[in-house]
């Protein structure tokens, strides 16, 4: 997983949150527990998994919105630190799930998109600022006439466009997209997915595309990583992951997705997982998935499986699959 042609490389990233469990006691909540991956320029890596598995935390700690507990992040070969993060902010951006809360409703579209331009002083004179804003608006499919309107006047899909225009203002090479279409209705979701894909083609920007909907991720991503309880359990090319999944968790996740096709829905075999996800403050020994896994053996309780190469860029962390 190393190599100099990577845009971003994450090595053994750990993010623990201290949780007060008594008067003088804290217990670490292991939100991200040893995650490694790499992204090439212009590549989209999808990150899927159920709520609480650590997707958002991965995105936030690799942008150093948290100070990671352990591990390293390299961007264009350079280790990301607190010292150089300000400079790297121009190259690494983030868009959020909730277009309602991530935009200031009292700012105009123009000012929202203009803010990063101001911060990084990316223009000479008012005219250039305005031209840049209008270009960005056009890029994400917003009508130029809307520049002076306020964020709260827009629907969810349009707000998501405003959010991405703001992220694009600094001409980043990499964007963490945290569930950017999850709050949208399907008909609007398709518009926004298309926009992300068009931007990728036009600008060559790379995404870490976080979502819980595997079908959405499959559509947009080149490769997909599946997380369970703070760890990546499987990574593969998008098609390989969907057509020949290997990890028992991926198998059940795929089989649980409701497919809008009754013939397929009724003919396929569902693997219904028993029980709930264990607490990240009290992880099972060995493989975190073993408490719900139908393939678990004694070894799974003793040792923690690591990602091993199954060929063609397909990595799986499981002893028995």
């Amino acid at each position: 997983m190393s190599g100099t042609d990577n845009l971003l490389e994450v090595r053994d990233l750990k993010q623990y949150f201290p949780i007060k469990t008594g008067m003088f006691q804290t217990t670490p909540l292991k939100a991200v527990d040893g995650v490694s991956f790499a992204i090439k320029p212009g590549e989209t890596l999808g990150l899927v998994g159920e709520s609480g598995c650590g997707k958002t935390t991965v995105g936030r700690s690799l942008l150093r919105l948290y100070k990671p507990t352990g591990g390293q992040v390299f961007f264009e070969g350079e280790e990301v630190t607190d010292a150089n993060m300000t400079a790297l902010r121009k190259k690494m951006q983030m868009v959020f799930q909730d277009p309602y809360s991530s935009l200031n409703p009292r700012m105009t579209v123009e000012d929202i998109i203009g803010e990063p331009l101001d911060v990084h002083k990316l223009y000479n004179g008012k005219k250039e600022r305005r031209d840049k804003i209008l270009n960005l608006m056009e890029l994400v499919g917003l009508n130029a006439e809307h520049a002076t309107r306020y964020a709260h006047e827009f629907s969810g899909g349009q707000r998501q466009r405003i959010g991405i225009a703001r992220a694009l203002a600094v001409d980043p090479k990499f964007i963490v997209c945290d569930e950017p279409v999850s709050a949208l209705d399907v008909s609007i979701q398709a518009q926004v997915i298309n926009m992300f894909e068009e931007l990728k083609e036009k600008l060559g920007v790379a995404y870490l595309f976080i979502a819980h909907d595997l079908l959405v991720v499959h559509h947009i991503a080149d490769r997909i990583a599946v997380m369970y309880l703070g760890k990546i359990v499987e990574v593969a090319k998008a098609d390989d992951l969907n057509l020949s999944p290997m990890h028992p968790y991926t198998l059940s996740l795929l089989s649980a997705i409701p497919i809008p096709d009754p013939h397929i829905a009724h003919s396929r075999q569902r693997i219904i997982l028993e029980g709930d996800v264990p607490s990240p403050m009290n992880l099972p020994t060995g493989c975190s998935f073993r408490t719900r896994c139908q393939y678990a053996t004694e070894r799974c309780a003793k040792e923690c499986p690591t990602l091993t190469d199954r060929g063609d860029g397909h990595f799986v962390a499981c002893f028995n699959k």
């Binding site: 629907s155 399907v186 979701q189 398709a190 518009q191 997915i193 499959h218 559509h219 998008a238 497919i259």
Partner: peptide, 24 residues
Amino acid sequence: KGLLRSIPSITNAKQKLIPIAGTP
């Protein structure tokens, strides 16, 4: 028809989605 066309599926990953135009 539009709704069915606009959802991502296992088989249309390589195609552009066809959204329903306009706003809610």
